[in-house]
Nucleic acid binder design. Structure first.
Lengths: 149, 149
DNA sequence: TGTTATTATTTCAACATTGAAATATACGAT
DNA sequence: ATCGTATATTTCAATGTTGAAATAATAACA
């Protein structure tokens, strides 16, 4: 149990906040995957379907930016969704470098069915916090997420 | 831009908090990796070294529990750390099912050098929040992390 | 003491993730 | 129109991640 780090109070507090933040998100994601929240899809596949559902057709670069994932990753995730018959690829006629990704009818049905269940699971998880606490958490996370600019 | 989900105010608030929480952690981790924070190690490798540094020798099952990762995953991450010469495996003499993982001298030097830099990067990131805000964030995350019991 | 159940680790297939190199297309300046 | 630069995607190798099956060792107990 030797604790090797003797930091300033500021450092210890930041470290404590960081550890609790990381663990909370890890634990939350683990619980959401254990349930039906993603309905047999991976979190990444679900994320792509959800983005297309809410924003309409997007090219892979836009998906990459929305989901904070690399371009190479998007290629694979979209490959797998195409194989599952949930999305389609087609070259952008205006700019043939881009590949537009659109929901198939099956994909739209799937995400339409899954999304409300996903939201319900999130509501359940967040019900340990009051509405005020949820608003505070969102506000603090917004500040923190933008810290790097 | 069609928004398909018309939820209750409670659902919209929980969803908003969830999205901001996820994005904040993703963005934060991305910025920490871009810097020297892990010193050429992956986040997983760094996590194992850090746990051994603070807690002393652990078996893989204990590392798995601490880091919220699967057993199969720990086998691989420890494999890679052994190959890098930063940790050693040895069978527990008392319970030969267990594999104890210990820091090598090189591993100890590495994490001793890296950890303070890691903390400094975290302090910098969290400096956009006041001490009170950091404490509030930690408290809310602690509640949320335990939500699933 | 055998038998059975439990626990710890490894192995494996599938998918995720990144970063860098390769390819293809578009754009800007001359 | 051409050349050079910038952008979008794909490919690839390395690592991470999980869950399930296989192995090995321990523990419980009739």
């Amino acid at each position: 149990m030797t604790v090797h780090y003797q930091g300033t109070p500021e450092a210890l507090q930041a470290l404590d906040a960081y550890v609790k933040l990381s663990r909370a998100v890890n634990a939350l994601e683990a619980r959401l995957s254990e349930r039906h929240a993603y309905g047999g899809l991976t979190a990444s596949q679900f994320g792509v379907l959800e983005a297309l559902y809410h924003l309409g057709p997007l090219c892979q670069g836009e998906l990459s930016a929305k989901l904070l994932k690399s371009g190479g990753n998007l290629t694979l995730v979209v490959d797998n969704l195409v194989r599952l018959g949930l999305v389609e690829r087609e070259r952008d006629t205006g700019d043939r470098r881009r590949v537009m990704v659109t929901l198939t009818e099956a994909g739209r049905e799937r995400i339409t069915e899954l999304f409300p269940l996903h939201v319900q699971d999130i509501v359940t998880e967040f019900s340990v916090l009051s509405p005020e606490e949820q608003a505070t958490l969102a506000s603090l996370c917004r500040k923190l997420g933008k810290a790097g600019q």
